[in-house]
């Protein structure tokens, strides 16, 4: 059976939670025993989210913690039912047709394992084969390919609890893909990994998308993940879609800026800033500047600082670091934009 194309349609999705608040119990702990009303608070997690994702694309879903990202992921995975709104994934309504739906998706949570802690990796795979009813010949081919591309051979016979985090994530990816799902949902897939592991995982995801045409939806806090993978970025904040644009647009606008931090051996020089450079409040012997590389190139800016340093009683330039905006910076810019526009 060929995998059905997983077109995702999300329309005006709304969801709120009720949370109980707890009064303090006091030094003797006795207040816990007095009758009290537990006040409930309602928190709106999603206030009308709409987007469509075409089969075969890679989409990044970004936003601060508590913005509603994981609520969207949970609803798309069929484990949470929204208050209102319409969702279909490949024609199925995830929560209403859960068993059929989850058989056609793969989900990886970066902070949660779906493999069995005490079982060797390969035994876990075999169990998943039976759970997902993967035909034996298909399973053998699929497993062989995943073992090769994710380089699992060395630790297939080790219990999951003995794996390093990087090894475990590779095994998790394979586990989510044994049944060849047309849609792969990744929730923070690179969290906590070292640089080589991150690179390997990104390369694998890209190849999976290109070769198998697997649709990929990922959430992340790492801007490099987005940069390396996403063709399109949806920014979620405060339960709403703040921005939904191709990655190139994001790169040209919000992601273009750079921050330069210059440290000096003594008090930094005062200098007149050229066009496209703004100064941030900084302390002691450092100087922090935000600049737009399209208007002034980084080497030129460094040269300027080198010349200014050491003159008129100020200290010479000692070191420079250039960073790109973090995901939090990008999002706070969207928030500002969102707040200033009606």
């Amino acid at each position: 059976m060929p995998p059905s194309p997983a077109r995702i349609v999300v329309e005006d999705l709304r969801k709120s939670y009720r949370v109980a608040t707890r009064p303090p119990v006091g030094p003797a702990g006795l207040a816990a025993w007095l009758p009290s009303r537990r006040p409930w608070r309602t928190i709106a997690a999603l206030r009308g989210v709409t987007f469509t994702i075409e089969p075969g694309t890679i989409t990044g879903l970004i936003g601060p913690n508590g913005a509603g990202k994981s609520t969207v992921i949970k609803i798309l995975s069929g484990i949470l039912r929204p208050e209102s709104g319409r969702v279909t994934v490949g024609g199925l309504v995830p929560w209403a047709q859960r068993l059929r739906h989850v058989g056609r998706i793969g989900v990886v949570f970066g902070q949660r394992s779906q493999l069995w802690w005490d079982l060797p990796v390969d035994d876990g795979f075999a169990l998943l084969r039976d759970i997902y009813r993967v035909p034996p010949t298909l399973y053998r081919a699929r497993r062989a390919r995943l073992v090769e591309t994710l380089r699992l051979a060395d630790f297939l016979d080790q219990p999951v609890r003995q794996l390093s985090l990087g090894q475990r994530m590779r095994a998790e990816l394979a586990a989510a893909l044994l049944h060849a799902p047309p849609l792969l949902i990744l929730d923070e897939p690179t969290i906590g990994l070292d640089a080589p592991s991150k690179l390997a995982i990104r390369a694998f995801i890209r190849d999976l998308n290109r070769q198998d045409g697997t649709t990929i939806l990922l959430t992340t806090h790492d801007m490099h993940d987005i940069e390396a993978l996403a063709e399109r970025v949806i920014v979620i904040g405060d339960g709403r879609v703040l921005a939904d644009s191709p990655f190139e647009t994001l790169r040209a606008t919000t992601l273009s800026g750079r921050r330069l931090i210059a440290s000096f051996d003594g008090p930094p020089p005062t200098l007149t800033l050229p066009e496209g450079v703004s100064r941030l409040p900084a302390t002691g012997q450092t100087l922090a500047l935000d600049f737009d590389p399209a208007r002034i190139a980084a080497p030129d800016l460094i040269q300027l600082l080198t010349q200014a340093g050491g003159t008129a009683g100020t200290a010479p330039l000692a070191d420079v670091t250039i960073t790109r905006p973090s995901i939090e910076d990008v999002i706070s810019r969207f928030y500002e934009h969102h707040a200033s526009s009606p």
Binding site: V25, G29, A32
Partner: peptide, 11 residues
């Protein structure tokens, strides 16, 4: 004290 307080929470 800390342990007593946590335990008393479990009414």
């Amino acid at each position: 004290r800390a342990r007593w307080q946590t335990t008393m929470r479990y009414r």
